Amino acid sequence: MDYQALKKDVIQYSKEIGIDKIGFASADIFESLKQRLLVQQALGYQSGFEEPDIEKRTNPELLLPKARSIIAIALAYPSKMKNPPRSTKDDRRGIFCRASWGQDYHTVLRSKLKQLEEYLQACAPGAKSKSMVDTGELSDRAAAERAGIGWSGKNCAIITPEFGSYVYLGEIVTNIPFEPDTPMEDRCGSCNKCVDVCPTGALVQGGQLDSNKCIAFLTQTKGFLPEQYRSKIGNRLYGCDTCQTVCPENKGKDFHLHAEMEPDPEIAKPKLKPLLTMSNREFKEKYGHVSGSWRGKKPIQRNAILALAHFKDTTALPDLTMLLHKDPRPVIRGTAGWAIGKIGDENYKKELELALEKETDEEAAKEIEKGLNMINK
């Protein structure tokens, strides 16, 4: 079979179905990545959301027997919201990161990859393939870097010359021996802005991330947010874009190429107070289609409470008091108690004392006590 001609056909077809960038790479073992991952594991820098088996993350043949090449794709997403709603003193708003604007990117990319796989099968009936997006075993960034989609930036994102780092990534491992493309030269140079401004110091150095300190990771955890990070989270409900927004390569980059990726401003930048009392059904109906909903409503509600504390929003005190007394989840009760203390209205001291008396969860009680101590200062 003429694989060079097939490669050209695949590239052409990818454009027809709305893939913004495509590249091809060998399916050789990712040796340098393997060494980096072993170091990350030894240092305890992994988030726990990754595939735990480093061999599977770095050896495509373990995912598809007789794998010969990888097709990497990228889709550009918007960096600016049209007519963003304003946060007001009486109606403060939170923010979802750009990667959670519009329809869940896993769904969008899987659809494109499925179309590509079906096209491959039609052109080469003996073709075998396995596609992945984000939650697959293989590292999307490593595949994209090797395939020449972009270079791996100091902010641990793939940066493309055309779209900056505002791209979603996915890949197909296949037994078709496509000729590999040339990886791109690193253009970060001496720039260190992302490392310097990371709110929590999660970027230990260029290209090395301590996931456990990363706000994008912290916003997705379900327990009490460690106190040292609460002032750093600001009004972020899900994810963090700081290391992208400061990147010079992203300056002026804003692409609106896919209707399904356009944000609904009321979802991407929602009012905080209504989030506090939202039922599971309401949450699924309103936010179920965005990637930021994958952990459920609890982390989003906890982050909304922290955002209200960040704003010192006194109008939220009645809602927070209701959560303090009535919510069945210790994390929400305790965080509400801490937030009431952070807002610092002495009129709510009795509410905290009452809640502390009847609190049965040890961690929640500690948080309520911290709230009391802040008011007593």
Rank of each mutant, 00 (worst) to 15 (best):
K7E: 14
K8I: 12
K8D: 13
D9Y: 10
Q12V: 11
G18M: 12
I19C: 06
D20G: 07
F30K: 01
K34E: 12
Q35K: 15
R36P: 06
G48M: 05
E51W: 01
K56I: 03
P65V: 07
K66V: 08
S69Y: 06
I70D: 00
I71F: 07
I71D: 02
P78N: 01
S79C: 05
N83P: 02
N83D: 15
T88C: 00
K89F: 15
D91V: 09
D91R: 15
G94Q: 02
F96I: 05
C97G: 13
R98P: 09
S100Y: 06
S100V: 00
Q103W: 11
Y105C: 08
H106I: 01
H106Y: 04
V108T: 09
L109F: 05
S111I: 09
L113T: 04
L116K: 02
Y119R: 09
L120Y: 03
P125K: 02
P125N: 01
P125L: 00
A127G: 06
K128N: 11
D134I: 00
S139N: 02
S139W: 04
D140W: 06
R141I: 01
A147M: 03
A147E: 06
G148C: 04
G148P: 10
I149R: 00
I158W: 01
P161E: 14
E162P: 10
S165P: 01
V167L: 05
Y168W: 13
E171T: 07
I172Q: 04
N175H: 08
I176V: 11
F178R: 03
E179S: 15
C191Q: 09
C194H: 05
C198P: 10
Q205V: 11
G206Y: 01
G207S: 06
N212F: 07
K213E: 07
L218R: 10
T221M: 11
K222Y: 09
K222E: 14
K222L: 13
G223P: 02
G223H: 12
L225V: 13
E227N: 11
Q228V: 13
Y229L: 14
G234N: 13
L237A: 03
Y238K: 12
Y238L: 10
D241Q: 04
D241V: 07
T242M: 13
T242L: 13
T242Y: 10
Q244A: 07
C247A: 07
G252E: 03
F255C: 04
F255D: 00
M261R: 07
E262R: 09
E262N: 08
I267Q: 10
A268F: 04
A268E: 05
A268W: 02
K269D: 09
K271S: 10
L275F: 04
L275Y: 00
S279T: 06
R281W: 04
Y287P: 01
S293C: 09
S293I: 03
K297T: 05
K298R: 14
K298Q: 13
R302Q: 07
N303Q: 07
L308V: 04
F311P: 01
F311Q: 07
T315R: 14
L317S: 05
L324N: 04
H325R: 11
K326Y: 10
P328D: 08
P330M: 08
P330I: 10
V331W: 00
I332T: 03
I332N: 00
I332R: 00
K342N: 12
G344W: 05
G344Q: 05
N347A: 15
N347S: 15
Y348W: 12
D361P: 04
N373Q: 15
I375N: 03
I375A: 05
N376K: 15
K377V: 10
